[in-house]
Design a protein around this nucleic acid. Sequence first.
DNA 1: GTCTATAGTAGGATAGAC
DNA 2: GTCTATCCTACTATAGAC
Lengths: 203, 203
Amino acid sequence: MGYHHGDLRAALIDAGTELIAEGGLPALSVAEAARRTGVSAAAPYRHFPSRQDFLVAVAAQAAHDLEDAMRSAADGADSDGEHPVAAIAAAAKAYVHFVASRRTGFGVVFAPELRGVHDEGLRDAGRAVSDIILLRAIGATGGDAQVAVDFLPQFMAIVHGCASLNQVGLFNDLDSAADVAADTVCRLVAARASASNSGAVGG
Amino acid sequence: MGYHHGDLRAALIDAGTELIAEGGLPALSVAEAARRTGVSAAAPYRHFPSRQDFLVAVAAQAAHDLEDAMRSAADGADSDGEHPVAAIAAAAKAYVHFVASRRTGFGVVFAPELRGVHDEGLRDAGRAVSDIILLRAIGATGGDAQVAVDFLPQFMAIVHGCASLNQVGLFNDLDSAADVAADTVCRLVAARASASNSGAVGG
DNA sequence: GTCTATAGTAGGATAGAC
DNA sequence: GTCTATCCTACTATAGAC
């Protein structure tokens, strides 16, 4: 083989990202990542002690990219900070698109296989994504932080649900999925803003 | 070994259901199902030509059980047909609980691995679940079928999202996840019912 | 840091005996 | 219909040469 790399570690992470994009988490294989990078199956073990550690590195990269995508979308839709609802809608669409192209989202960032792993990148990215939505939600609902905190899991559930259902083919196309996600979060924000003290239904 | 079964096929499907509940789709293995059922690794192949066919059978069973769970919950919360919103909330909670106990939901019922498979049980169950929600949604929003049709994917996205996020540990406990799902779908129905002709936000 | 070689594990699937 | 035996494949991980 005799291939020489400037940065094998990064190349392997890229290959791993590709593998997940193609076949989901179970398709992440150290051996296949090595094959695609042009090195032997043993080489990756100089950079990652085990498949688990490799997965953590790939997930951290994905989390960072996801944070970037959502932040860019939110900022782009609301450059002056006056349109928090538009920012939330844009972030929702960005999430659905990200998952469609990478097959990676909250499900990988917070993957069960990663429980108990103390990776700074992962934790930070998770909090960063939450902050992107939280800040806008506070702005969109009139400054009530508690309402925003309640809205956060709803936002995550909706965008993750749309992204997942899109993956299994329940939407006609990607744009439909993204539109449903954006429309739904907007409806919820609107309902919250107009009646932020109404009780929850269906206990 | 020499084990004798009245219905090995059914026993294998039960074992397969257990495997998925424990480790998700990738944990479904013909060999392991055989082991747990007390037969040789070759025995299942008398009943299922391949792992794929085995998966279809397990998924069909899951779809049937899911339909049952959601229908029972909806009927139980609305025995007289006068409380469609309560029925929708109950179905939402039932979905989250079902996924928590079985690790199977829309993601398996409509699994990518099953694309193009023409299994009657799967198709029927998918439509049945849709109907459970559609009928109640029409009742809850004042008889507007189009609003109900639009609401269906939102319902699915929300309950699936809550169930998935619960699996990766983003809720404090199962009841919180189910409550968020029920609360969110109720808020949406309420918003739809009060303003069924409002335009969608965030195009 | 990367290679070759190898041990160990596990699953999918088939052939042929009973 | 089930068994034993077997083949093939693929991946994780390690040892030791370069």
